[in-house]
């Protein structure tokens, strides 16, 4: 469930940011998405990408543990 929420929030956030970018830069949706996802070489954007990925892993782990706890309770 946490993973699901994570994905919803992630995609939602992306859509929101790109909508705003579309408004500001007067570009099409795909242009904006492309711009958001190109990692500019030499910058430290990978850091932030890595963080988000860690967040994703975390949410999976949390989900797993939640499920395990639930199972234990039922037993």
């Amino acid at each position: 469930m946490v993973t699901f929420v994570y994905l919803v929030m992630y995609i939602g956030m992306l859509v929101l940011i790109s909508l705003i970018d579309m408004f500001i830069w007067k570009q099409s949706f795909f242009q904006v998405i492309l711009r958001l996802f190109t990692l500019d070489e030499g910058t430290n954007e990978w850091l932030i990408g890595g963080t988000v990925f860690i967040g994703f892993i975390c949410s999976i782990v949390i989900d797993y543990r939640l499920r395990k706890n639930k199972g234990q309770k039922q037993l």
Binding site: V2, V5, Y6, M9, M13, I17, R35, I54, G55
Partner: peptide, 25 residues
């Protein structure tokens, strides 16, 4: 979602720090 928010703190924090960079060039 009916899940305690504590479980979501960490993943959501990463999303926010991600968005902080992404919102503008």
């Amino acid at each position: 979602t009916n899940i305690s928010y504590r479980y979501m703190v960490l993943p959501m924090a990463t999303i926010i720090s991600y968005g902080t960079i992404l919102i503008s060039d």
